[in-house]
């Protein structure tokens, strides 16, 4: 059995997506052959597609309410080569900085629709919220190790041709929408939630121009 891992993050090897794909590959052990590809270089897409596998794992962040540009280009190439994917299982892992899974539901729906178009089997779509910063997690932290545990469990699901397990899906899902108390606080005191951005902007020495309108 052979698995292709497609990392569709615009950040490539320094992405949060890379953490997830590496953990998944680690969880596979030596049981199957794995090819790992980055999709950000669109010139290599045909070459990537030509490396045919038995199943596929696609990971990328939610981007402007859908998939990043390079992923969309790749999907168009997959459509041109749909005979390669016909009947084969594709697993998707999509993540976003938003805590709510609701933000990614449209993308989930599109991925299922896309698989139908190319005749592939959309085996599972896992949605993860609050993923920004995962790549900076300490490898001994509790959160990192829980992510590792569930990515390893997903690896076993793929090896055994199963859908992603429900417990793992629930772990990454976090919340469908913001709970009412959180929503109340966010509505009335948004600065609490936006503090992280201000800290990052300050660190770059750009705080005074954070509301600049350079294209006005």
């Amino acid at each position: 059995m052979k698995l292709s891992i497609y990392n569709g993050s615009p950040r490539g090897s320094s992405s949060n997506s890379d953490v997830f794909s590496d953990l998944l590959a680690e969880g596979m052990g030596n049981s199957i052959e794995i090819s790992k590809y980055y999709l950000k270089d669109t010139a290599k897409h045909q070459q990537i597609i030509n490396d045919v596998s038995d199943c596929y794992f696609v990971v990328f962040p939610l981007y402007a309410d859908l998939a990043p540009y390079a992923v969309k280009v790749f999907f168009e190439k997959m459509e041109e080569n749909k005979e390669i994917y016909s009947g084969k299982p594709i697993y998707f892992f999509i993540h976003s900085g938003f805590p709510e899974a609701k933000q990614s539901r449209l993308l989930e729906r599109y991925l299922k629709y896309f698989c139908k178009i190319i005749g592939a089997e959309c085996k599972s779509v896992c949605i993860m919220g609050n993923s920004e910063g995962v790549r900076h997690l300490n490898r001994t932290s509790k959160r990192y190790n829980r992510i590792k545990f569930y990515m390893h469990s997903f690896a076993q699901d793929i090896i055994n041709d199963r859908q992603f397990n429900e417990e793992g899906i629930r772990f990454f899902h976090m919340m469908e929408t913001l709970p009412k108390p959180v929503l109340f606080i966010f509505r009335h005191f948004p600065s609490i939630f936006n503090k992280g951005f201000d800290i990052m902007i300050k660190k770059k020495g750009a705080y005074e121009k954070r509301f600049d309108k350079p294209y006005a």
């Binding site: 993050s9 615009p10 950040r11 992405s15 902007i201 660190k203 750009a206 600049d212 350079p214």
Partner: peptide
């Protein structure tokens, strides 16, 4: 060019 996800427009050179 495609967006590179660098966040320059958000945190380094706001808006640009």
């Amino acid at each position: 060019h495609p967006c590179s996800g660098c966040w320059t427009c958000w945190i380094k050179e706001p808006g640009r």
